[in-house]
């Protein structure tokens, strides 16, 4: 059976629906016994942020303020309407007993996901290692992700 048992997922978006898709796929590949790496870049960083304010310089602080919060506060890519969409989606998912993002993230961690954060994105957005959840295994560059991807049979970009 073992041809190649690895999966790599690049999560670039920080939108609720995209993060939900990435987490769902990661849980499925992990459940199938695949060694799964989630490489998180740019807006996706929100999915692994603790939720505190970030940024050092003026623009960094502004960005940190506008983009504050972590997994709990992200909205959908469409129909957010200043947070109403997020509330509606959360409620609809709860009513249908679909799990919420924080629980999904914990499930991925329990199943042994490798969380890698993109160094450049963090530098640009002035996000520090301490701003990310402890389970993040490394702050890496594109070459690491490419090496991972080249060894993976399955690859997703979200």
């Amino acid at each position: 059976m073992e041809k190649n048992n690895r999966a790599t997922i690049v999560l670039m978006s920080g939108d609720f629906d995209h993060v939900f898709a990435a987490f769902t796929i990661a849980i499925a590949t992990l459940s199938a016994g695949m060694d799964t790496t989630l490489f998180i870049t740019f807006w996706g960083i929100k999915a692994i942020q603790k939720g505190n304010l970030t940024g050092q310089g003026f623009f960094g602080k502004m960005l940190g303020l506008i983009n504050r919060g972590g997994l709990d506060v992200i909205g959908p890519s469409k129909f957010n309407f200043g947070g109403i969409g997020r509330w509606m989606f959360k409620k609809m998912m709860k009513d249908k007993r679909v799990v919420q993002l924080p629980e999904m993230r914990q499930t991925m961690i329990d199943l042994g996901v490798h969380l890698l954060a993109c160094k450049t994105s963090m530098d640009v957005m002035e996000i520090k290692r301490e701003d990310l959840i402890d389970e993040v295994e490394g702050i890496v560059g594109a070459a690491t992700m490419v090496e991972n991807a080249s060894k993976s049979e399955v690859h997703f970009f979200i």
Partner: peptide, 15 residues
């Protein structure tokens, strides 16, 4: 019962 994708599979793998 009551769980939706992907949780039944996640618990299956865990169990």
């Amino acid at each position: 019962v009551g769980q939706m994708c992907p949780m039944p599979i996640a618990y299956l793998a865990k169990n």
